[in-house]
Computed example of a mutant assay.
Amino acid sequence: MKIYTKTGDRGETGLFGGQRVPKDDARVEAYGDVDELNSVLGIAVSKLQAAGETALADALRAVQSDLFTVGANLATPAPEDGGRPSSFIPGLPEGRVEELEAWIDAAEGELAPLQNFVLPGGTGAASYLHLARTVCRRAERRVVSLARQAHVGAEWITYLNRLSDLLFTLARLANRRAGVEDVPWVSGQR
C-alpha cells in the first residue's frame, strides 16, 4: 500500500466511519494535537532510555499506546454526530486514570515538595517531558472545544488532564534522578 492516497489534496480528510471533513475541523485539530503529543513523547522516551531510565521509558511507551486509543476515538464521530459504531476502536483499559495518579504519587514520593513554580528545562529528558506537558495541555483544550460541538467521552478529557500532571511530575523526577536542580521561577528576575 502506498503512503500517499491523494484524497486529501483538496484540504479534506476522512474520519473513521467514512465522513469527510476539512483538515482544520475541530475533530482533526483535537486528534492532531494528540498525535503531536505522542511524537514528542517518543523523543522523551528516547532521552530517558539514553539516560538509563528504562522503567520510565517503558511506562511512557504504554502511555503512547493509550494516546493512539485516544486519537482513534477522537477520529470516530459518535452515532449522535453521524458516525457509525465500530468494534475496532478500543477504549482505555479500566482504571487507567487511577494508574496515572498512582504513578504521580510514587514519583512525588521521591521529590521534595514543590515550593514555587519551576522553569521548564534541565536534562534533555526533562526538557522534552516539559514540552510534552505543554502539548498535552493544548490537546486537552482542543478536546474540550470539540466536546462543546460534538459528543466526546469525558474520559478523554480526564485522561489528558491527568497525563499533563504526570508529565510535569516526571520532568521533575528526571532532573532529580540526574542530579539536576529544578530552576525556580523568580518574578521580575533578569
Score class of each variant (00 low, 15 high):
51 A>R: 06
62 A>H: 03
121 G>P: 11
68 F>R: 07
32 G>W: 02
158 T>W: 00
153 G>R: 04
79 P>E: 14
149 Q>C: 03
63 V>M: 09
71 G>P: 08
92 L>A: 04
187 S>E: 15
1 M>F: 08
110 E>D: 13
150 A>M: 13
108 E>Y: 01
9 D>E: 12
11 G>Y: 12
65 S>C: 11
61 R>M: 07
177 R>W: 11
120 P>Y: 03
142 R>H: 15
111 L>A: 02
187 S>W: 11
93 P>F: 01
79 P>C: 14
46 S>K: 07
21 V>M: 03
113 P>V: 06
27 R>P: 07
180 V>Y: 02
155 E>M: 00
118 V>N: 03
20 R>W: 09
54 T>W: 11
84 R>H: 07
63 V>L: 08
168 F>R: 01
46 S>E: 06
111 L>D: 01
14 G>L: 01
132 A>W: 02
100 L>W: 06
187 S>Q: 15
102 A>D: 13
8 G>F: 14
2 K>L: 14
114 L>A: 08
99 E>H: 09
124 G>V: 01
52 G>H: 09
47 K>Q: 09
36 E>I: 05
156 W>S: 06
100 L>I: 12
112 A>P: 08
143 V>R: 10
86 S>N: 07
151 H>K: 15
18 G>N: 08
60 L>F: 15
176 R>A: 14
47 K>P: 00
4 Y>G: 02
176 R>S: 11
183 V>S: 10
74 L>S: 06
153 G>T: 02
125 A>P: 11
43 I>H: 10
90 P>H: 00
98 E>D: 15
190 R>P: 04
20 R>P: 13
11 G>C: 12
159 Y>G: 03
187 S>L: 13
55 A>H: 13
16 F>Y: 14
37 L>N: 02
7 T>S: 15
154 A>Q: 14
48 L>R: 10
146 L>E: 05
185 W>T: 10
9 D>S: 06
36 E>T: 14
157 I>E: 11
134 T>Q: 11
69 T>S: 10
